[in-house]
Amino acid sequence: MTGENGQISIWYFIGCLLTIYGVLITGSGIYELFSPPAHPVVLAEFHAAVWWGLLMLAGGLAYIHFFRPSKGNK
């Protein structure tokens, strides 16, 4: 499950999903920066989608890097 026995690590899957989600959520947050919604959420000025999305993106890329199949995790 961690890459032994010719298997892709679970953390690699998680990295891929976090990367995709990170891109989508960051993109959504950036769009809101330039096109604020009519009814913003509470603390909208913190732009949580941007930094939370970037956090997920960074975490996802790190997982992809450290658990990629070519790195002996396959």
């Binding site: 989508l24 959520i25 959504s28 947050g29 909208a44 949580a48």
Partner: peptide, 12 residues
């Protein structure tokens, strides 16, 4: 959720 989470985060 509705109070704090905007598009994208709400889906998450």
């Amino acid at each position: 959720m509705a109070r704090y989470l905007g598009p994208g985060l709400l889906g998450l």
